[in-house]
Simulated scan of single mutants.
Amino acid sequence: MPTALVTGAAGFIGYHLCARLLSEGWRVVGIDALTDYYDPELKRARLALLKARPDFEIIEARIEEEGRLLSLMQTHQPELVVHLAAQAGVRHSIDAPRSYMHANLEGTFELLEAARAVPPRHMLLASTSSVYGANTKIPYAETDRADHPLSFYAATKKAMEAMAHSYAHLYDLPMTMFRFFTVYGPWGRPDMALFKFTRGILEGLPIDIYNHGQMRRDFTYIDDLIEGVIRLSSTVPGQGAVVTGDSLSSVAPFRVVNVGNGAPVQLLDFVTAIETALDQSADRNMMEMQPGDVLETWADTSLLRQLVGELPKTQLAEGVGEFVRWYRGYYGT
């Protein structure tokens, strides 16, 4: 039975990825600090479902703790490493930048050092569409420059990409850096728009809509994203042909891949989809643009398709409906 190490295993994406790996016959070792950035009980509820599986093990610890990841790698010798642990959130990075430095930079350094000592077959590391920052060319392609991040969160993720590339080059470590676009679905994060809007509408509270709704996001349903990650896990940089528009490094087994839906949605249409799923109207509080935000995200997914084939694309109404059903069931509303 092959072993996978997943950092951030109690998180939204981490939970879904661990569940899928377990169903695919992997033994999964997870690590998560269960920080209080959002409700730790939601994280524990995710973990409770994973712990019911016999081939899952969780270590509650911070990845930036010196030597912790090295010890895990030495003990479990994982073939696959998926690095999802991070301090997330664009707006929070304005208020608490130090937490991003510790988790995103120091934590990634600890992982890279551990991989140098105990090399896995393939490492996949989570970046974000936020690294495209001030870019005006859309859709965003992996080969576009991403030199102007608009938030410290995005800056730390871009720094992670550079750190990972250097280790891939120096130590011949195959790495895929995937740039996620706005992910949503059941068990989602409470700081994300879908969760906040759903909760606000059900509680009869105003929902804050930034830039008066004049924003577009490439919303990506969680199951579609996980399918992409699973397929990419067996697509090892440097072990296949170079494809058109490839981001494969010329000096390292390192590739950057967008993982998104490839079809941006107007924010107000997103709100309407939530209202429809809830059968309840929102009290819309129109606000100005927030620092660190971008007007639009849109993934060019042509590289992803060439590498792993066509992926499922869950329609927005269906995906929002699945989230609302989960939310009502979990919170009993």
Results as ranks from 00 to 15, higher is better:
136 T>V: 12
75 T>E: 15
64 E>G: 06
171 Y>Q: 00
86 A>R: 04
138 I>D: 02
133 G>N: 10
151 S>E: 07
151 S>K: 04
176 T>P: 07
69 L>F: 08
71 S>E: 15
124 L>W: 06
70 L>G: 15
118 V>K: 08
162 A>E: 13
92 H>R: 12
168 A>V: 01
133 G>L: 05
134 A>I: 04
161 E>K: 01
78 P>S: 05
156 T>M: 04
108 T>G: 10
113 E>W: 11
148 H>E: 14
125 L>I: 11
68 R>P: 04
165 H>A: 04
126 A>F: 05
112 L>R: 11
175 M>E: 07
147 D>S: 02
85 A>R: 06
170 L>A: 07
79 E>W: 07
90 V>M: 03
94 I>Q: 14
167 Y>V: 02
116 R>E: 11
155 A>I: 00
92 H>V: 14
84 L>Q: 13
165 H>W: 12
95 D>V: 13
164 A>G: 02
171 Y>W: 12
154 A>V: 00
162 A>R: 10
77 Q>C: 09
83 H>I: 02
122 H>Y: 10
100 Y>E: 12
97 P>A: 11
101 M>I: 10
160 M>S: 02
147 D>P: 00
119 P>R: 06
139 P>C: 08
157 K>M: 03
159 A>M: 09
175 M>F: 11
162 A>W: 03
154 A>E: 10
75 T>K: 15
129 S>K: 03
176 T>E: 09
153 Y>V: 03
154 A>W: 09
161 E>W: 02
120 P>K: 03
96 A>K: 13
150 L>A: 01
156 T>D: 10
130 S>G: 06
129 S>F: 13
87 Q>T: 14
66 E>N: 05
149 P>T: 00
115 A>C: 15
68 R>Q: 14
162 A>L: 06
117 A>M: 10
69 L>S: 08
111 L>K: 05
149 P>A: 00
154 A>Y: 10
107 G>M: 09
63 I>F: 06
163 M>A: 02
153 Y>S: 02
79 E>K: 12
142 E>V: 15
81 V>L: 07
149 P>E: 06
148 H>R: 12
87 Q>I: 03
84 L>N: 12
168 A>F: 04
141 A>T: 13
146 A>N: 09
84 L>M: 13
